[in-house]
Structures are given as C-alpha cells and as structure tokens.
C-alpha cells in the first residue's frame, strides 16, 4: 500500500509528460503543414479578407479603448513618480518606451487572444466535432489550405497593425493625462519621446507583435483542429469549451514567456 502511494503520482506524472510531449510533437507538425500552405494554390483571398475583418477590423474599437486607458494610466503612474524627482519632462519618453517595447505588443496580444483567438479555437473545434473538417477532406478541399492558412495570414497581418494602433492611441492617452491634465509642456512630452524611443525599440515591438501573432494563431487553431486526438477527450460542446479554455491559457502564458525571451535577446 505504501508503494502505491509513491507509484501513483509518479505514474500520472509520467503519463502527463508523455501526453504533453506527444501534443507538442503534433502541434509542431501541424505548424509545419500549415505554414507550407504558402506554396499551395490557390490562395483563398476572400477567406483571408474575411478573417482580417474578423481579427483586425472588428477589434479596432476594443484595441483603441484599451490603448487609450493604458496610455492614460501609464502617464498617471509615471507622472506621480517623475514629479518626485522633478523630471516630468521625461514623461513622454517613459510613456513611449513602455508602450512601444512592452505594453503595446503584450496587451494587444492578450486582448486578441480573448477576442479572436478563443473564438477561432471554438469555431475550429466545432468544425472538428461536427465532422465539417472531415467533410472538407472528403470534398478534396485541404482544410490546411482552406481553413487554417487564411487564419494564419490574418493574424500575422492584423496583430502587428493592431499593436501599432494601440501604441498611437496610448501615446495620445498619455498626452491627455500628461499635457492636458497635469500641464506638462507639449513640446517636452513629444520631444523627449522622440529622443528616447529609437528604431531598435520600435523593431523590438514589431518583432514581438509578429512572434505573438504566430503564437496566438498557432495555438488557437491547433488546439481546435487537433482536439479529436487529445487523450481522454470529451466530445461535443463540453470538449470544445475545454479545449478553448486550454488554448486561451496556453496562448497567454506562451506570450508572456516569449515576451521575456525576446526582451532578453534584444535589449
């Protein structure tokens, strides 16, 4: 009996790690096959546009509102700190740097996971449980080309652009708090921002948003597309809701992890 007490957790640890490894392998192959569709013809332009509208155009308002408030709160916090050192003229650079390098890419990615990533995962998951993906296969329509590749392109295009929109709105949100409310000079706000934010900071932000977009679309479509292969998988609506929750958690954690790695490599 005492042996069992030790064995069972070890067994379940082994099973869990094997299952995780297996899933990682499947996800890797999934990613490679999806990316190979760059060479597949024809590109489904209309589907790509529909996906860009879904991921990008329909997220603009959320991103703008979030960007404005994030810019405002960052300016508020930095103003409160900088005023103690008498360096409120640095407010612009503080807001600009934190938005462009960190907050813009990360928060945009997290919002997009919640708004578009989860919906994409659920949609693909429903298509899997309802045999729609099998039906595409049986119609000789490659689901990787028809279903997944347009989503990869859409996220890859939309997330960096949404990040840029988030940053610009955030900068003006910071301007509103700093210049309009706390009367920091407008010239100092924009000049210090322009002076401190360098091309390397911008390219770090863009790199992050591109990497994040790939992570989001990969995890969210992959989890839904491969859900029938999961061990102890539940069918139907419950299975889809589980796999969607899973995708949101994994995608969010991967983004924060990748954020640290990229920052460490590029700083």
């Amino acid at each position: 009996m005492r042996m069992m007490g030790v064995r069972l957790p070890l067994i379940s640890l082994g099973q869990t790690s094997l299952a995780a490894l297996e899933e990682l392998g499947r996800m890797g192959i999934f990613f490679a096959v999806a990316m190979r569709q760059i060479f597949a013809r024809p590109w489904e332009l209309r589907l790509i546009l529909q996906q860009i509208r879904f991921v990008g155009a329909r997220s603009v308002v959320v991103i703008a509102v979030a960007g404005a408030f994030v810019g405002m709160v960052v300016a508020l916090q930095f103003y409160d700190t900088l005023v103690r050192f008498g360096s409120v003229s640095m407010l612009g650079s503080a807001v600009g740097l934190s938005l462009v390098r960190e907050l813009g890419p990360v928060l945009t990615a997290l919002i997009i996971i919640g708004r578009a990533g989860s919906a994409t995962c659920a949609e693909i998951g429903i298509m899997r449980t309802d045999n729609q993906i099998d039906a595409l296969e049986c119609m000789a329509v490659d689901p990787y080309r028809y279903l997944l590749f347009p989503r990869f392109i859409a996220f890859l295009v939309a997330v960096p652009l949404l990040t840029a929109i988030f940053n610009v709105i955030g900068i003006f949100g910071g301007w509103f708090v700093g210049v309009a409310i706390f009367k920091v000079s407008q010239g100092a706000y924009f000049q210090s921002m322009a002076d401190t934010v360098l091309v390397s900071d911008l390219s770090m932000g863009v790199t992050k948003s591109i990497v994040f977009s790939v992570l989001i679309v990969w995890i969210c479509t992959g989890k839904g597309f491969l859900m029938h292969l999961n061990q102890g998988m539940v069918f139907g609506a419950e299975g889809v809701s589980r796999v969607t929750t899973d995708a949101v958690v994994v995608a969010s954690i991967s983004i924060l992890f990748a954020d640290y790695i990229i920052s460490a490599l590029m700083l």
Partner: peptide, 30 residues
Amino acid sequence: RKRIGVAFQGGALINSMSVIDNVELPLRQH
C-alpha cells in the same frame, strides 16, 4: 475524392456559409 461523395450524419455543412454556398463549394474548388 473528387469522384466520390460523402454525406455525413449531421450534414456537416460549413456553419459560416449559407446552404447554397455550401453546395457550391466543391464546384467552386474543383
């Protein structure tokens, strides 16, 4: 597979497309 047809249990229509778009899909693709 272009020479076979498969009708699934629940229809398995692509749920983002109208009925006619679903039926047209194989013709448009092939």
